[in-house]
Design a binder for these strands. Structure first.
Lengths: 342, 342
DNA sequence: TTGTAAGCGTTATCAT
DNA sequence: ATGATAACGCTTACAA
């Protein structure tokens, strides 16, 4: 346990002033003789000197840290997003403070408070939907806020990066309709989430285009986490006229749904066609391999980091950047033509 | 974009000195009249004041940030570990700086450098195995370093939290031997990783206990990431006397291995029994449900955070804390009795 | 090319 | 109970 050397120690040991040391630390900041530079560098080396970030940040606001506020990192989708965001950020010399909300807006508020205190330059978040005043304040403070995956409709001034949920919901549903299904169920996130809302809108559009009747009973909003997805599945199965096809619009819910189907002895795709929003490697290893909507996580991450670092602080209100990347419908074997024979 | 109010602004607006404001900010630090306190609080509220962490950190070394340096967050095991670590840390008011190495020791060195500059109080890491001097230096600097999941044998002075890899490898292998298998293959991490090393040691022990011959050809070390696991599987299958059972000792490799088996038309568990170190929900949904070694991620996370925050800086060398939690062998259906009939 | 000194926002030690 | 004021480690005019 040794005491950390400061810039002053280095200066003294090298026989120069702190200003000189600072200049060799930040190259562009001023002239320094080549000989002095190497000498100072040597001293830093031998002393094991490392400039202290906290002290640096004190001078100018630090565009050196990004907040990443996710619902839940144990969800593979968010985990991979985090992985990519971290890599993108590091490539630009930016560090990432990771926080989770567990979909709890109270926790979210707490996290945002510490993010404010840290004066992070940008925040990439999957917002719970509440805490709107805080988000506004953050922006007013000059923080670059980017919503990823979902957004808050009543906060149009915030940048958003997500897939085209409407189109994804539409095309998934259309695929099922094209296979002859007339009773198509959809399990989606909470009604407050734009993700769920847009996917359901796309779903409705597809039904209409296919001339199918819309039945509100077939539309289930379930919490993102926990067993809610499974409960929704059970409810659908217990309908007097149950669906023959399912769009499961959330990663965390898929496993629950599949468990229920399996327990109920409902075969995929024989008795039930399934499409899921998910892209884990294991979807391909299932029996049968699952037809999925693949989200381009790399793109989501790249755009998010880019926006969060854009320093668009002083822009006119109303012109938020909205980036919608298209998701890919990957057809495998969990969707089959409807068996007309009962 | 408004300028952030400082403690001085608050003091002025409240008609008091900065010292008083500081005292209401840090309750135990000194007396302040109840009336003044509420007035100051009101002013802070209306001004939207938030104390700046960077300035605080400048004074005393900040036990307020933890570095979490993982190989890869897209790996579900690490992702869930990250999730738990973040929650544990937040519960104690600590923030987490997330970094990844991609198993690249050069990247690791860079990340460690920034962690040093940030003066984090502790680091939880899955080390690549190199950069030993840097780890030592970190400790000398008083940083609480904790290796999780794996460790570096030549760095015995670092705290470690992991499952009992030896026992896990042993019991998994013993289970296969008990099912009559005599040719048991193991695919593990790189030989440099303690994780792989210990699991293989346990594997050997089990073979010996069962009176089975050890064949080095059945032991495959493969890189943690990429398709290496699949290649190892192929190599094993091409042996003149191929194994009838497999222990796959790494999360990321499992999917690759299963793909190869599937492509080769080798049925599980009919033609090949399989045990994997993995605990994603999907292992249960596979056909057949996979027999797994389940790692108690919660415990790993909790102990790691605890150690990383223990501030054991000044302890005598040599008495590093090593915590081994036991993993659970969950028997499902991917292990079957060896079919003697060829 | 190098050195001096004044901040950055906060806490802590004195006095008052 | 409150108020000046000196740190903390670094950057940056401005001087030399």
């Amino acid at each position: 346990m040794q005491k950390q050397p400061t810039i002053r120690d280095v200066a003294q040991a090298a026989g120069v002033s702190v200003a000189v040391v600072s200049r060799v630390l930040n190259p562009g900041s001023g002239p320094v003789a080549a000989a002095t530079r190497t000498r100072v560098n040597e001293v830093m080396q031998s002393l094991g000197y490392h400039p202290r970030t906290a002290a640096r940040e004190l001078k100018f606001g630090p565009p050196t840290t990004l907040g990443l506020l996710l619902a839940d990192v144990s969800n593979p989708f968010f985990a991979r997003l985090a992985d990519r965001v971290v890599q993108e950020a590091h490539a630009r010399g930016i560090q990432v403070l990771l926080m989770t909300t567990q979909e709890d807006d109270h926790l979210e508020a707490e996290r945002l408070a510490t993010l404010i205190e840290r004066r992070v330059s940008g925040i990439i978040a999957t917002p719970t939907g509440n805490n709107q005043e805080i988000w506004k304040k953050l922006q007013a403070l000059g923080t670059d806020v980017v919503f990823v995956d979902r957004s808050i409709p009543t906060l149009p001034e915030v940048d958003v990066v997500s897939i085209d949920n409407f189109e994804s919901g539409r095309s998934a549903t259309a695929l099922l309709a094209a296979h002859g299904h007339r009773r198509i169920g959809i399990i989606s996130g909470p009604a407050t989430s734009t993700t769920g809302r847009d996917r359901i809108a796309g779903y409705r559009e597809a039904l209409e285009a296919a001339g199918l009747e819309q039945d509100e009973l077939l539309i289930r909003s379930a919490a993102f986490r926990g067993a809610a997805g499974g409960d929704a599945a059970s409810a659908l199965l217990n309908l007097e006229d149950p669906p023959t096809a399912l769009v499961v619009a959330n990663t965390a819910q898929v496993t629950e749904v599949l468990k229920r189907l399996s327990h109920a002895g409902i075969a995929i795709p024989g008795a039930m066609s399934v499409i899921v929003f998910e892209d884990s490697p294991w979807t391909e290893l299932m029996t049968p391999p699952l037809t999925i909507v693949r989200q381009p996580i790399d793109l989501l991450a790249r755009h998010s980091v880019q926006l969060a670092l854009a320093n668009t602080s002083g822009r006119a209100p109303g012109n938020a950047t909205v980036i919608r990347v298209s998701a890919e419908l990957v057809e495998r074997s969990s969707v089959a033509r409807l068996q007309l024979a009962k």
